[in-house]
Simulated scan of single mutants.
Amino acid sequence: MSGEAPPQDLEAIATRFAALWQALSQADGELRPPAETRLLADRVRDALDRRVGRLEAVETSFIANSFALEAMVHDGALTQIHQLRHRDLGTLHALKALRPDQADNVVARDLLLREAGFGARLRHRHVAAATAALRLADGRPALLMDWLPSSLSDRMRKAPFRRDEVATIAAALLSGLEAVHAAGLVHADLAPDNLLYDGEDLATLRIADFGIALETGQRHADVDLARAGRESFSAPEQQAGKPLDGRTDLYASGRILQMLLERCADGQGAQDPLREDPLRELAGKLARPDLEVRLSSAGVALAMLRGD
């Protein structure tokens, strides 16, 4: 059959394979732990798949034996986000991992693993949560996520908004929040750079980055965070360090909508006291500082947006 190696080549490879397997499975004459052997075997497979001439001492170009590391797209104080490409499928993904110099930061590690657990509870078209938790070769935890190249923050710097675009963003944001709150969670960090979408379609907008999310009724002090959130979008109760619920996220969504309405290109963003503005009214009811008179749920806000 064409494509088969000559018998003498297979015999030579078999001899070398036996020596390779002995090197992988034994160290100083003793058997390695099975997990260590599997890790070494995976790295050999990586090298064979990439047809490299030698096996480097430290291999960082592949993650979990499946994803090629392509670029770092964010380098924060505690975490980094990388663009990955699946080695077989060619699909793009995002990887959120602790910075190498934060590998021993117990609080940051626990928060990342909590975020992975939250991702397991969130499956919604307007939520971009972690899809899997991985371990890097040096032991750092990392989160695998969908690749969404555009953020609302980027879009705000490019061009003004139309009012129908603001309404589309509001519908996606509130729909995603309804799912987050139904899962018993509070995002607690809504801001334009945590609202991502695919390409140019704002209707694909998704809520991302659950790094400081909480269970409903928790305070950030409960997870060893003295202060968390962004002042421009944090509700008064969050700034005061009180227990949070879904209404905290509604405040942030109202502030975001108010900001977008101020950037409308069609002349309807500015407030006109002589004209009713349902979208501005919705934003105002969401962003009320008084928790007791703020809209009570994302579902109520969605009904108001639809005019129900």
Rank of each mutant, 00 (worst) to 15 (best):
A94G: 11
D290M: 09
P236F: 02
H126G: 07
A167I: 04
H181L: 07
A167S: 12
H74W: 04
S297T: 09
R87W: 14
I256V: 14
L173G: 00
E276M: 07
I212Q: 03
A120N: 08
T37M: 09
P33N: 12
S25N: 11
R121Y: 04
A172Y: 02
S232M: 14
L260T: 10
A14N: 02
H181A: 06
D198G: 07
E4C: 03
V107T: 10
L40S: 14
G254Y: 02
T37D: 05
L225G: 01
A228M: 08
A108F: 14
M156E: 09
R163P: 02
A120D: 05
A208L: 12
S66H: 13
D104A: 15
L89A: 11
P34H: 10
F161A: 00
H86N: 06
F233I: 03
I169K: 00
D224N: 08
M304Q: 15
V52N: 08
R288H: 11
S66D: 14
A71R: 10
A171Q: 11
D42H: 14
L148Q: 09
N105H: 13
D249L: 07
T37P: 05
D46R: 09
L174V: 05
V166A: 09
A41C: 11
A12I: 11
R43L: 11
T131H: 05
L69I: 06
Q271R: 12
G184W: 08
Q218C: 13
T60A: 01
L148N: 06
A57C: 04
G53F: 07
D222S: 13
G176N: 03
L244A: 08
A12C: 06
R54A: 15
S175I: 06
R157H: 15
E56N: 08
R109A: 15
L260A: 08
D272L: 06
V58Q: 14
A94E: 02
R280S: 13
G53D: 14
V52P: 12
A108W: 14
L112G: 03
P273D: 11
P192W: 05
G284I: 03
